[in-house]
Design a protein around this nucleic acid. Structure first.
Lengths: 126, 126
DNA sequence: TTCACTAGTTCGGAACATAAGAACTATTAA
DNA sequence: TTAATAGTTCTTATGTTCCGAACTAGTGAA
């Protein structure tokens, strides 16, 4: 099994970042990793979404985030630990990550509010 | 031919915006529309990229931008005029568009600088 | 009217990307 | 060894995207 690939900071592209974060599951994972002090394992996200995500799919999502340069993953014993590379990215693209995560949170709040208001037809939330 | 679809501001999602702008051609188009005072037609972008883009493909790109809520297109005579919906989006997701466009410009500048430095192997630019 | 022209859209198939079950690898522990 | 756990890779079905060809809509002649 070859070691995980991580792009150098100069090879990280805006398009790559946007693409990686244009998936609801991946933003959810990333924003969680960003928000938590300690590093996170893959399987702690088997239930980010309302329905369980197969682990092969999860693994692909982590690969996407890694190859976009958003997170760094390293093996610790039997599990993978993931941390965000936001400090590096902030240097190259100041304000980008912050703005995206903030917008994502605005959207989550709006959805939550909408659900609380009209409970009749509970729309799926992330 | 049915009239063009434009999502209402509340149906615009962060994921949708990120996905629409995760394509080099589409960010190029969008950032151009954003930056220009007057509205832009489709065909003025046949050469945004180094190689000409077929007009069917261009049309799809405009559709993607429209349906993500990023631009508004309206027919004027025989041609389509496109303007950005950034003011609306700014209200819903403050700072998002600005941050993305800024990051995109940083990337363009870095690429230009890199090309100037090592002319031997001119890497493709946007 | 009809014809031609221009700007853009839609259709259809090939090329590419994604999702998820099954099979695999790596590490630890018994 | 063997078993268990955490992730990865393989394979296939399903979705997207690209782009040429065919189409539509508006304009302005003859």
């Amino acid at each position: 099994m070859r070691p995980l690939f991580h792009p150098s900071i100069d090879d990280i592209t805006v398009e790559g970042i946007l693409h990686a974060l244009s998936d609801p599951v991946r933003v959810a994972i990333y924003s969680d990793i960003l928000g938590s002090e300690c590093s996170q394992t893959c399987s702690s996200f088997l239930n980010v979404s309302e329905k369980a995500i197969p682990k092969s799919t999860l693994s692909q999502h982590f690969k996407a985030l890694r190859e976009a340069g958003l997170i760094r993953g390293e093996r610790r014993g039997v599990e993978m630990h993931n941390i965000s590379r936001c400090a590096e990215i902030e240097k190259r693209f100041p304000g980008l990550i912050m703005a995206i995560v903030r917008a994502y949170n605005v959207q989550l709040e709006a959805k939550t509010r909408a659900n609380k208001a009209g409970k009749r037809k509970p729309s799926k939330r992330l």
